[in-house]
Nucleic acid binder design. Structure first.
Length: 122
DNA sequence: CATATGACGACAA
DNA sequence: ATTGTCGCCATAT
């Protein structure tokens, strides 16, 4: 595994950890905040490679369309639905109302941990 | 180096 | 609203 990749994944996970309870974010959204424009798939990759007992709230990450990315019927899928519902996130007909639950970080929150979103250089 | 794949996203029919 | 295409980008073969 390349170091750059691990760092990228860590940034992604860190960003996901910032999603407040009761909210959700799309893969693309996470990617952008993590400093990886068009990196939606990389977020998916990072989640797929989540370290074994990580406390990352991966279940708050869903597709921009409001769907859960996992295949229906899988254990992970059920786990995600369950967790979301526990946080009062309604799932109607297998979908989540993004307009209503999408995480909208304020500048304060971004300034709060910029190291991830901006060049380490600066 | 060429292809195929995937926890994605935007857009056209 | 549903479905299909194409664009993206790191990995795997």
């Amino acid at each position: 595994m390349k170091a750059a990749t691990e760092k990228r994944n860590e940034r992604i996970w860190a960003t996901i950890c910032d999603i407040p309870e009761g909210s959700v974010a799309s893969y693309g959204q996470i990617a952008e905040i993590a400093g990886i424009p068009r990196g939606a798939r990389q977020v998916g990759y990072a989640l797929r490679h989540l370290p074994k007992g990580s406390k990352v709230p991966w279940y708050r990450v869903i597709q921009a369309s409001g769907n859960i990315a996992l295949k229906v019927g899988t254990r992970a899928f059920n786990e995600q639905c369950k967790r979301l519902m526990m946080e009062d996130v309604a799932i109607l007909n297998g979908r989540i109302d993004m307009k209503k639950y999408r995480w909208q970080p304020d500048l304060d929150e971004l300034l709060w941990k910029p190291s991830a979103a901006w060049d380490d250089d600066e």
